[in-house]
Computed example of a mutant assay.
Amino acid sequence: MVTLGTDRISEFSHLFEKKRLAIVVNQASLNSSLLDTYSVFVQAGFQVTTLFGPQHGLFGHTQDNMIEWQGDEYEKKNVRIHSLYGEHRKPTPEMLSETDVIVFDVPDVGARYYTFIWTLALLMEAAAEHHKKIVVLDRPNPLGGESIEGPMLDTEFSSFVGLYPLINRHGLTIGEVARWLQKYHIQEVDLEVIPMKGWQRSDWYDQSGLKWIMPSPNMPALSTATVYPGQCLLEATNISEGRGTTRPFEIFGAPWIDNEKMCDFLNINCPGATFQPWFFEPTFHKFERTLCRGAFIHVTDRLLYQSVATTMTILSYLFNTYPEKFEFKAPPYEYEYEKMPFDILMGSDRWRSELSSGIRPAYKWSELWRDDEREWREFREEFLLYS
């Protein structure tokens, strides 16, 4: 079994002794014995003065896209609680006034748009500005650390789903993300990463021996995380990404799709997955209580499956087959009020334009960002912690 950074705090007790700690956590912040991180520190005798929570709340109870929560919704004796997805996404001086060391222990799912890594970035900026140390307790990238995918973000399209240049599926652990941020973007921060033991880059989450704990309300399983780097793009369209079902992102569709024809096409042009025609009625979100026709994605070979390229193939099919039905959503999206949601997710307005060039199979999309992947693979070597 993998030993998490959270399991190793006693080995690094010098970082926490006689310090006032602010811990950044959510409902998935557990050690390998399923004890929550706050209790891990308290039972070890360390002083926790503040709790911060990211998007979706301390307990993963709020939904997507600017559904905020406030710290005063919770009560915990002798501990201040602050939301980093509400009035503030970056802690203020007052929020850090009773803190010497910030401890970050929020799981990531390996995709650029998952906002927790950008909460980490803003915390690192605040730590540098206010001369606080930040300690990141490392956790596995659920998708492993070898496969990467997608184009590089253009800084013109920086947002809370991508503050700094990064490809869609980055192949880093949360601790490696912190090292990258420190090296290239937030050099002044006093950073320490407590690494895992027993994790290798080739390991997917189901090879770690750890329980899957939902890191957000629509991430119920590893299979969800597997398709998410591509399927998250549907959030920026009028296609249901399956919110309001029990298998979001694996299920997708709309009322007006001929799903038999769509699946026939996708099963020929998207290797590593089988698309099963699927009917569903979302209980909330897009097309609430309306019968949708779409597909269930069964990933049959996760090493062959390319999530971003697959979803771009889905979108190119729907965009060109249903030009009078398909729509891109308008802003706001994740606190961006001007640029199109699809553009900030893909990190450029190029890819929305490319969809109008016709229907493409997955391998043709992959070819368009292969150089970005090659450059990122070489560039990231210096801040990797695991082989």
Rank of each mutant, 00 (worst) to 15 (best):
T226F: 02
F284C: 13
G294D: 10
L210W: 01
A309L: 13
Q182V: 12
Q55D: 09
R289W: 11
R370F: 09
Y114F: 14
L15G: 04
E146L: 11
P107Y: 00
A44Q: 10
L96S: 04
K77P: 14
T300D: 09
S356C: 06
P332S: 11
I148N: 07
F280V: 04
E192C: 13
P332T: 07
S387D: 15
G347I: 06
L191I: 13
L143E: 02
T224I: 00
T37A: 06
A225D: 01
E73D: 10
F379L: 06
L166H: 08
E260C: 13
R377C: 12
E288C: 13
R201P: 09
G57I: 03
P341L: 07
Y228G: 00
I314L: 15
A128P: 05
S83F: 04
A28H: 03
T6N: 10
G294L: 03
L291D: 10
E373C: 15
R112Q: 04
Q200R: 14
R293M: 12
L172G: 02
K211N: 10
P165V: 11
E129K: 12
G272K: 09
P220V: 04
E75F: 11
E17L: 11
L35P: 11
F249N: 00
P140V: 01
R370W: 11
K325D: 15
Y205V: 00
M262H: 03
R247N: 13
Q27E: 07
F16S: 03
W351V: 04
P255F: 06
Q200Y: 12
Q187R: 11
Y205L: 00
K329T: 12
L163Y: 05
L291I: 06
L291S: 05
E373T: 13
I9F: 02
